[in-house]
Design a protein around this nucleic acid. Sequence first.
DNA 1: CCCCAGGCTTTTC
DNA 2: GAAAAGCATGGG
Length: 312
Amino acid sequence: MLYTLKIKSSWSLPVKDILFSGQSFLWNEHANVQGYYSSVIGSVPLFIRQLSGNEFEIHSPCNEINGIPLQEFIHNYFSLDIDTKNVFPEGFHLLHPELWKLLGEYLPLRILRQDPFQTMIMFMCAQGIGMHLIRKQVAMLTETYGERITVTFQEKEIVLHDFPTPLRLASADPFALSRCTNNNRVRAANIIAASRSVVEGKIDLHSLRNRDIPLNELRMTLSQQSGIGFKIADCIALFGLGRFDAFPIDTHVRQYLGAWFNSAAALRSLSPVTYLIMDAEARTIVNPEFAGFAGHILFHCWRKEIKKLRSF
DNA sequence: CCCCAGGCTTTTC
DNA sequence: GAAAAGCATGGG
């Protein structure tokens, strides 16, 4: 039996852009369930379809995820509580009229509130390689180490995989795991070590949810772990801990800070010092409370409109 | 062949 | 201290 849920909003909800903008690598399109995007979230299979500009439909065999009613979970997952009008400051469109025009269709983009462990592992796979290789790594990790889940949908047997648990990755063989990390042994070892830290409680992702923790403290704590620097720490904060004030700076963000906002630091080589300078600059450009939320909208717009890249 | 992709760590000047 | 090299593969 499948539960069906319809989500309707007063604003536009570009579901495909939200799921494939590079903040999650867990969603896929299947040839045998056309028009739907599928994933396993909180061990629950989900099928999503866009119905119109501001509504989408969800099918799931469970009516709750992580003990939370499906509708409430989805509302939170898609951050439908956030009014995206607040992510850019009042006068932004006057200061950057050309950019504002370009941003138009990207403004309804939203940040997903994802699982912090999954976010940590996914973004540890995202160092100096293209988006399609990141997706490939995450897919191989889930297929190799995640629990296999079968679900009947549209009278077809659909096979999906849950994201691997911390315990499963912590006990993985380094060489075997490296097949899932683009054959990068160092990355595989880092993922195993980080998973072990979570299992042992050395990294307590639940307590890091505390919103009283300052952003720089969060960044310093997470980047203690080998394989996690400032950028990935900020990604974990933004996408995995719901810290919409975190502003991860990667090669694309650095490029648009230089091209669109005339950042001098963006022209220098990326180091911890220049990272923190650009982080401070960003907070003068967008609303600091939603710096990362705005940053992701700018990121996706830059990649698609300027660099002409695809996210999958 | 080159350079670059949602970087981080280690080595070298 | 800052800069350069190494990591691995695919695509432009």
